[in-house]
Amino acid sequence: MAKTASIAEGKRKAGRRYKGFSSWNNYLFLLPALLFMAIFIVYPIAYNVVLSFQDVDIYNFRQERNFVGLDNYVQTFRDPVFGTSFVNSVIFTVLSIVFQFTIGFALALFFNMKFPGRNLFRSLTLLSWMLPVVITGTIFQWMLSGDYGVVNALLQSVGILDAPYNWLSEPKTALLATVVANIWTGIPFNMIILLSGLQTLPEHLYEAAKLDGANKWLQFRHITLPLLRPTLLVLLMLGIIYTFKVFDLVFIMTNGGPVNSSTVLPIYAYQLSFSTFEFSRGAAVSMIMFAMLIVIAIFYLRLTSKEEAN
C-alpha cells in the first residue's frame, strides 16, 4: 500500500521511506566483487595494454622498460605465423560452431518429444561438456592415435582406411582432429540452450498449424525457426566467442603442431608469452584477439538488449 501511494510522489520520497535499504551501505554488498574485479581483472587488462607497447621479455620484466610504440603490433602482423593462426582460428571456430549447432539442434528437437527416460538421457549427454578439457583432449588423443587408436581400427574394419593414419601428426588433419574433439564437448551446451528455448514455444501454435495441414517441416520452418530466432542468434554469438578462445584442448592434443598447422590464436599468444617469453609480443597478440572478441561482443550485447526490448 505504501508503495502505490508513493509512486505519484516520486522517487525521492520513496527513497526516504525505505531509508535503511537505499543508503550508501548498499554498496557494501558489491564492494568485495568490485575490489576483486579491479585488482584481478581490470588491472591485468590495463597492464596487458601497457605491456603491448613496451619491450618486456623474461630478462627485463623486473626492471625498467622502454616504450616501443606500435612495434609489437607491426611485428605481429608481419609474422606469417600470425596469419596462419588467424586462419586456423577461423576454420576451428566456423567448423566447430556449424556442427555443434546443427547436431545440438537436431538433438534438442529429438529430446523435445515426450518419451520415457528422456530427462535422464538429456542430462547424461551433458557429461561430455562437463568433463575437464584436459581429460577430453587426452581421450581423443588416444582414440585418434596412429597405431593402436580405436578410430583407425574402426575405419579399417569398415574399409574406409587401408592402413593406420596418424590424425594428430599429419598437418592435413591435426586441426580437424581438434575440431572433432571440440564439437564433442560443445554439443550438449547447444542442445540444452536450444531445448530450453523450444520449451517456451506455445503449444497451441503447433496445434493450429496441424489443423491447417502443415507438415512437420513447415511447422519447423514457419513456427519454430522464427520464434526461436533470438535464442539462435545469442547462442551462435556466444558459441563463436567461446570457441574462438579455446586453448586447453588444442594445447593438449597437438600444441599447435605439426609445423603450426593447428596453431590457433590463443596458442600463438601462449607460445610468445610462455615458450619464447616475449611478454610484450604475447600481450600484443592478446590485444588483437581481444579487439576481435569485442566486435563480436558488441553484436551480442546489441542482440540481447534488442531481445530485452521486445
Binding site: I41, P44, I45, Y47, N48, L51, I241, Y242, F244, K245, F247, P266, A269, Y270, S273, F274, F279, G282, A283, S286, M289, F290, L293, I296, A297
Partner: peptide
C-alpha cells in the same frame, strides 16, 4: 568472454 591466455600472462 576474455580469453584465459590474455589474463594468464599479466
Amino acid at each position: 568472454m576474455l580469453p584465459g591466455i590474455m589474463m594468464a600472462m599479466p
